[in-house]
């Protein structure tokens, strides 16, 4: 099963880091879509089949929390697996997000933590590329 993934982050360099991590993780990937804010993310969800969304919280136009609320309120997307990838450190806000049925990955993250979260969410197995991970665990993002 190839996963179509949506990456929503206002930072272009962070989107590239996340996508690079996904590619190095060995997860079976289909199409990868990028959005710079929640509104763009909702439009992509409307136009394409997405299996997994990775969403930042602090973004202009529409933040990640509002996007997640709208995704959960729409019967067509209500069950979408979502991982929040954010600097958010407030336990209260993280708990609030988790109550919306999302996983949480704290920035800076390691490729291992991100790919393990995705495997946990999707149940899709992965086999990392042979040259993608150093013995010490590779990159910290």
């Amino acid at each position: 099963m190839a996963l179509n993934v949506l990456v929503v982050d206002d930072s272009a360099i962070m989107r590239r880091m996340i996508i690079k991590t996904l590619r190095l993780s060995g997860l079976p990937l289909g199409e990868i879509y990028e959005a710079g804010n929640g509104q763009e993310g909702l439009q992509i969800l409307h136009d394409h089949w997405i299996d997994l969304a990775l969403v930042d919280i602090n973004m202009p136009v529409m933040n990640g929390e509002e996007m997640i609320n709208q995704v959960r309120a729409n019967p067509e997307t209500a069950d979408l697996p979502i991982a929040v990838v954010s600097t958010e450190s407030s336990e209260m806000r993280i708990e609030m997000l988790q109550q919306k049925g999302v996983e949480f990955v704290h920035k800076p993250f390691t490729p291992e933590s991100l790919s393990q979260t995705i495997v946990k969410m999707t149940g899709v197995n992965h086999e990392p590329d042979g040259d993608s991970a150093s013995p010490s665990g590779g990159y910290d993002f």
Binding site: S11, A12, I13, M14, N58, T87, E88, S89, K107, P108
Partner: peptide, 13 residues
Amino acid sequence: DALREIANVICGN
């Protein structure tokens, strides 16, 4: 953009 993300992560932490 890299600098913006660095500042964002420092501030958030």
